[in-house]
Design a protein around this nucleic acid. Structure first.
Lengths: 218, 218
DNA sequence: GATGACGATATTGTCAGCAATCCGTCGTTT
DNA sequence: AAACGACGGATTGCTGACAATATCGTCATC
């Protein structure tokens, strides 16, 4: 569950979380400079603390640091978002395959439950619920896969382009497209077909990539 | 090219490099405690510097830190090495596919050159040369793929279990097995067949995984 | 008017020291 | 004798200050 590293300095961790949240919620805009002294005031922490936090966020890919020139919120272009999503594609495929190998009856019930609730939320047009179910589904698959290395990488990649993901979810017609893909993943994992589950996961992310590409054109 | 993050404090970077090298070359044994004060003396640096270095290496997965209890060289079990290699498998597959899409005539020449030199070194039994060519091949493929995100992740994963990779390379008969797999990757990339190149890359890493599994049995 | 050198300012990188935390040990109590 | 709690040593986490570096504006020069 813990996002990434093992090091968890107490106040330091809260500093990381607060800055991360401020980036993800848009308090800090993409490209904005993050001056250490300012963050010190804001967080009531020392510079060593915010410095460690910035290093961590640099590692997560949320901020960009250059030597002697400070840190800024990383702006991820559509091209980068596509490259990130391509890496996600193969890793989610791996997790889906592993999940199909490991899935337990209880987990099958959970997957089906998410699937039916996804179907409901799409037919009722509840985009936000669908989106949170989407996150839950991917989390559950990763958890079932029991592949901590791939999981850690995926969590990071995901955090890195939440912004694009979010914009994508709001596109009209997008939930309808992704719903069937999600249901296919659920079906194959529950059927314990690793190869088919991997293909389904990759098809899903391929569709995400196509949608991202369309944003450049449109 | 740069190993990982964008942050490159000058002396800090050398501290990171030196500790990393000492871990990879075995000066610091797996599981060994890394006390900050001792590293300060060894590197003639301040604690802030070595602290930042340890954080970076924690991010890279080479050291393990727990709050208030310090850092130690991470020991990676065979199970972890397998999980890491499974993640590598799908990412190398992605890079191979992308490389097959992007490869230029000049790069084809370079790939063929490496291939023929690999064949020579295997037939002459020169394991170390073969190993360095192996590294060069993977580097070149990643470079051709032009997929910076996947590349960065792969470099980290690779560094994380060099030890296992190294032991593997020394196993009798191993070079003969991997040679044909490497040549297949080269063939498919040069033929510009993305799907086939991906399959070839995955077959290769699958064979690495099988070899790793055998180490547990034997 | 454009260009390049120079200096002031802002910001990061580094250092030494203090406070907080954890582990092992010892003594005390039941 | 075993369990429990307090003490001491060691090590990390954090704070404030100092040094190094890059950026920006100014001014002289071509």
């Amino acid at each position: 569950m813990s996002p990434a590293s093992t090091a968890v300095p107490e106040t330091g961790e809260s500093a990381v979380s607060r800055i991360r949240d401020d980036i993800l919620t848009g308090v800090f805009a993409p490209g904005q400079r993050l001056v250490e002294a300012e963050l010190c005031e804001r967080l009531h922490a020392s510079r060593a603390t915010v410095r460690a936090a910035l290093a961590e966020l640099d590692h997560e890919g949320l901020v960009e640091r250059v030597a002697n020139r400070g840190a800024r919120v990383r702006t991820v272009s559509v091209e980068e978002a596509i490259a990130i999503t391509e890496a996600r594609m193969v890793l989610e495929g791996l997790c889906a395959a592993k999940a199909a190998e490991n899935v337990t009856p209880d987990e099958i019930v959970q997957l089906r439950e998410i699937g039916s609730r996804m179907t409901e939320s799409v037919s009722s047009g509840d985009v936000m619920t669908y989106r949170s179910l989407n996150v839950r589904l991917h989390n559950l698959v990763r958890q079932i896969a029991n592949q901590p290395i791939a999981e850690e990488i995926l969590i990071r990649l995901l955090a890195r382009n939440v912004r694009h993901q979010f914009q994508l979810a709001l596109r009209p017609g997008r939930p309808q497209v992704s719903l069937s893909e999600h249901l296919a993943i659920i079906d194959e994992v529950c059927a314990r077909h690793p190869e088919a589950a991997e293909r389904a996961a990759r098809r899903h992310i391929e569709s995400v990539i196509r949608a991202l590409r369309e944003t450049t054109a449109g």
